[in-house]
């Protein structure tokens, strides 16, 4: 190979960049995401289920909340009938946070893990124990 020094340096940089995630994670164990459901309200529940299936909620809670927001604020609709027929108030404070009162161990841990930073918290301050986001 000609100009091998330069080409090899370039290729090494390429490999380092292209396989960077592998290098940085080498030897580390991927920690599965742990979400805490250990709150007083949840502990008291007979059937530990959210308003929709957990899989659905994990993937779609933000879309649902977005829809709720328009329904509540703009339409004045406040009651959500879930797919199981159960009725819930469409409210973070008066519904979601009642069970998920552990913002930092539930909401935040997943948000941090997947690096999403929703602006909901700017107003909806979470639970009593969670403290305020400045």
């Amino acid at each position: 190979m000609y100009n091998s020094r330069k080409i090899i340096i370039g290729l090494v940089i390429f490999v380092l960049v292209a396989a960077f995630p592998f290098f940085i994670n080498v030897g580390k164990t991927a920690q599965p995401l742990q979400l805490s459901l250990n709150t007083p309200t949840i502990n008291q529940l007979e059937k530990k289920e959210c308003i929709e299936s957990a899989d659905y909620m994990r993937a779609n809670h933000m879309r649902m909340l977005n829809e709720w927001r328009d329904q509540v604020v703009r339409e004045g609709n406040t009651v959500y009938t879930s797919s199981s027929g159960q009725k819930y108030e469409m409210s973070l404070e008066n519904n979601c946070f009642q069970c998920h009162s552990n913002k930092s161990n539930f909401c935040d841990s997943c948000h941090t893990y997947s690096q999403v930073d929703p602006y909901c918290w700017d107003c909806h301050n979470g639970t009593k124990g969670a403290g305020l986001k400045q």
Binding site: E52, S53, Y56, N60, E67, W68, Q71, E75, G76, N77, T78, V79, Y80, T81, S82, S83, E89, M90
Partner: peptide, 9 residues
């Protein structure tokens, strides 16, 4: 998921 119903209280 199918769109759920949302109504007034």
């Amino acid at each position: 998921v199918e769109a759920a119903e949302m109504n007034k209280d």
